[in-house]
């Protein structure tokens, strides 16, 4: 009886899972494996091989790699500095870093479009200082720049969390046993934060790989990512079959990258949520 009640409580979640997760995936699979007349075909998936699609996928991977690498290089030293200052100040600085996340994603992108435009704030300031203007709007540089801006907190937080978990006495114990700062970094700090790094990489790389809004707004139609190709297939060409096929290919890349990273994270700390 009790067991039945408890299962009943899980009902709403079951409806959610089936209705909003399983059904859509089945539908995407169905569309991906059929053509517009409903016959089974692999052509939608093999369409990734056409130059325009493979070029978009390659560019997506390249920009996502770049974005992840820049986020990692920025976040790791920051997390180290953060974990060494007073606790009260730590919370404030972490708060400042995640503050932009409280603003709408689209608004943030639009704001950067305004800031980076030819007669935007940044170029006006540069002009008055006599520095040549920054002409990066509508280029991959602007897209990567905005990706880093948007996804940086997702890299900082897991690394900072894993760093903050290392007790001060662990570091002191290492010093006590004769370790200098280089040894402490490579033998203690780095191994103990690797799970945070893995989580951060996944949480930045996956959204960067699949994003289309940033390239849409800051790329000016010149930066075509795989996300934009899929969006166009659905929204402009009304070719749900092609869109689904390319989505499946992208999904494979996402899952593969997650599996690759998780394999390096033996403790499974944090990365498990993905």
């Amino acid at each position: 009886m009790n067991k039945l009640k408890r299962q009943f409580l899980a009902g709403p979640y079951l409806v959610w899972i089936i209705g909003f997760i399983l059904l859509p995936i089945i539908m995407i699979l169905y569309y991906a494996l059929t053509n517009q007349t409903g016959e089974a075909t692999l052509s939608n998936i093999l369409a990734i091989g056409t130059p325009i699609h493979s070029k978009a996928l390659f560019l997506s991977l390249k920009l996502a790699f770049l974005c992840t690498a820049i986020c990692l290089v920025l976040s790791y030293p920051l997390a180290m500095i953060l974990s060494n200052i007073r606790k009260k100040h730590q919370n404030l600085i972490v708060f400042i870093f995640i503050l932009p996340m409280w603003m709408n994603f689209m608004l943030r992108i639009l704001a950067w479009k305004m800031l980076l435009s030819n007669n935007g704030v940044i170029n006006s300031v540069l002009e008055t200082l006599g520095i040549p203007p920054l002409d990066i709007l509508n280029t991959p540089t602007a897209v990567v720049f905005c990706m880093v801006y948007d996804f940086l907190p997702f890299m900082i937080l897991p690394i900072y969390n894993s760093m903050a978990r290392i007790g001060k006495d662990i570091i002191e114990a290492a010093k006590d046993l004769g370790a200098g700062s280089v040894t402490i970094f490579f033998k203690i700090i780095l191994p103990l934060t690797i799970s945070g790094v893995v989580s951060g990489i996944i949480m930045v790389f996956v959204p960067a790989l699949t994003s289309f809004a940033i390239s849409d707004l800051l790329g000016g139609g010149k930066v075509l990512l795989i996300g934009n190709v899929i969006e166009q297939a659905f929204m402009q060409e009304y070719n749900w079959n092609l869109g689904s096929g390319l989505s499946i290919v992208l999904m494979v890349f996402v899952i593969a990258s997650m599996a690759l990273m998780s394999a390096h994270d033996k403790e499974g700390g944090g990365a498990g949520v993905w």
């Binding site: 662990i170 114990a173 006590d176 046993l177 370790a179 203690i188």
Partner: peptide, 15 residues
Amino acid sequence: NQRQVNTVFQKYALF
């Protein structure tokens, strides 16, 4: 790390 003493910490501090 330059002293000839070693410490046993209150909370063990094992790696």
